[in-house]
Nucleic acid binder design. Structure first.
Lengths: 142, 142
DNA sequence: TACAAATAATTGCTATAACAATAATTACAA
DNA sequence: TTGTAATTATTGTTATAGCAATTATTTGTA
C-alpha cells in the first residue's frame, strides 16, 4: 500500500472548502464555510450549547466561541444563558439567520450535486466505509 | 444522494492531521504536520523554489513563505537565491533536516499502515477514483 | 530597446485550529 | 455537607489558510 491517502483526503477537503467558499462569494454571501457549518447544525437542532455545537461540528470549544462571536456580530445567531446550568449558553438562529440559511441551502445543495456527478450510490457507501474505517483505525491506542 | 461527503472528508482529514501530530509529540518531535509535508517534498526533490513547493503541497505562496521561515529557524532547511532567476529562492534540506526526515519517516509510515488496516488495494483504487472525481467535478465552471 | 505584463516572494489582515490556562459553576465523593 | 473534581465558556499564543497589495525581477512585445 503505497497510497498517500492522508494527503489525498486533505487535498480534497481543502478544494471542497475553497470551491464552496467561491460559490458563497459569487452569490454575494459574506460568510465562511465554517460559519455555514455552524448555521446548518443550528437549523437542524434549533437550540444547542457551545459544547454540543463543538461535538457536532468536530471543532474545539475555543473555535466555536470565536465563530459564534462573529455570527452574533453578523446578527445571524442569538446566545441566551441556560436556566438549568448557569455555565451554559444556548445558541440558536435569529430570524435573519433563518432567512440566510434558506438562501444558502440551495447554493450548498447545488454544489454537492455537482461534486457528486458521475458517482453512484455504491461509491457513497464505499467512501463512508473507507473513511470511517480510517478514523476508527487511527483513534484509540498508539 | 443525501450523503454530506464534504463534511465526512473534512472530518477525516482533520482527524488524520490531529493523530499524526500526536505521534510526533509522543516521539518528542517539535514539528507540525504541515511542516512535515514540506520536508517530505524536499526529500523527494532535493531543490525546489517556493512556488514549486506551493504547487506540490497545495498550499499558497504566503503560507509556504511562513512555513519555510519556521523551518529555517529550526535549522531544518536552507534557502539560497537562484542564480538564473534572482526573484527565486531555492529551498533544500539541511544536514539536520535530512537526519530529522529519516527519524520522522518511519513514524509516518507506521501511522499510514495503521490507518489503512483492514482496507484493500481495491479500496485504495476506489478512494482515489472517487476523490479525484469530486475534485474535477467541482473545479472549472460554476 | 523600451515598456507593459507576468512571475516570485513577501507582508498585512482576518479566520480557523490546537493547545494551555483561567474563571465560574456544577457534580460527586468522603 | 464540604471540598475536590469535572464541566462550560473564555482568553491568549502560535500555526495554517486565503486574499490583497507590494516589491523586485524577468518575459514578452511593439
Amino acid at each position: 500500500m503505497d497510497l498517500n491517502y492522508g494527503f489525498l483526503i486533505e487535498k480534497t477537503g481543502k478544494k471542497l472548502k475553497q470551491e464552496l467558499q467561491k460559490r458563497f462569494q459569487e452569490n454575494g454571501k459574506d460568510i465562511t464555510v465554517d460559519q455555514w457549518v455552524i448555521l446548518l447544525e443550528l437549523k437542524k437542532f434549533h437550540l444547542l450549547s457551545q459544547v454540543e455545537l463543538a461535538e457536532k461540528t468536530f471543532k474545539d470549544a475555543p473555535t466555536v466561541t470565536r465563530i459564534i462571536d462573529l455570527l452574533i456580530k453578523k446578527e445571524l445567531v442569538i446566545k441566551t444563558s441556560s436556566e438549568d446550568d448557569r455555565r451554559k449558553f444556548m445558541v440558536s438562529l435569529s430570524e435573519k439567520g433563518k432567512q440566510e440559511v434558506e438562501i444558502l441551502l440551495p447554493i450548498v445543495q447545488k454544489f454537492r450535486i455537482k461534486g457528486w456527478f458521475g458517482l453512484t450510490e455504491n461509491d457513497g457507501i464505499a467512501l463512508q466505509r473507507i473513511l470511517n474505517k480510517i478514523i476508527t483505525n487511527i483513534q484509540h491506542g498508539h
